[in-house]
Structures are given as C-alpha cells and as structure tokens.
C-alpha cells in the first residue's frame, strides 16, 4: 500500500491547522485548529500503521484522541472562565504573562 496520498492529506490538514493557530484570534477557532493538527497526525499514524501492518500506530492514535479529549475539557474550561472575566474570547486579550 502506498501511503503517499494519505500523507499529503495529513500535511495539508496540519498546515491548515497550524495557519489557523497562528492567524486566528478567537480562542475557540484556535482550539479547533489545534484539534485539526492533532487529527492530521492521527491520520498519518493510522496510515503508517496500515502500511507496516501492525497496530502500534493505531494505538498511539487512540492515545492521542484520549489526550485530546482531556485537553479539550481543560482548554474549554479555561476559555469559558476567561470569557466570563473578560467578555472576550480573543487570545490577544490574555497577554498577562509577560514582564
């Protein structure tokens, strides 16, 4: 099996995700873009798993999903509390950790 097409797709998804992270200001969108990047990685993992004929890649993909789900829980909670305190979901408004 030739994974090249899957990898192209994964790269495309990753790039879209990365660009989104860098240029969007809405925290929810940034968050979705991060998910997109994670899923791009999942796609390539699954593709490699298929190519090598073993399950390692798929197991890692499951791990990623679990971790991503946990991350979504924590991340959304932060975004919600941020929105409550500042009435904005823009990431640029949360630049408090600088000197």
């Amino acid at each position: 099996m030739n994974p090249v097409n899957y990898l192209y797709l994964a790269a495309l998804l990753f790039t879209i995700g990365a660009t989104g992270v860098l240029i969007r200001r809405n925290a929810i969108v940034v968050f979705m873009c991060i998910e997109l990047m994670l899923n791009a990685c999942n796609l390539s993992l699954v593709a490699f798993s298929r190519m090598h004929g073993n399950l390692d890649g798929q197991i890692i993909a499951f791990f990623t999903m679990v971790v991503a789900a946990a991350e979504v829980v924590v991340g959304l909670a932060i975004i919600v509390s941020l929105f409550r305190s500042r009435h904005s979901a823009s990431v640029d408004d949360a630049s408090l950790m600088k000197l």
């Binding site: 860098l22 940034v30 990431v91 640029d92 630049s95 950790m97 600088k98 000197l99």
Partner: peptide, 12 residues
C-alpha cells in the same frame, strides 16, 4: 525581554 510580548500566537 521584548520578545516575550505575551501573545500566544507569537510564541506559537
């Protein structure tokens, strides 16, 4: 120090 501007996207 000015590099640490606090914007998440520039860290990214």
């Amino acid at each position: 120090r000015r590099l640490q501007n606090g914007y998440a996207r520039s860290y990214a």
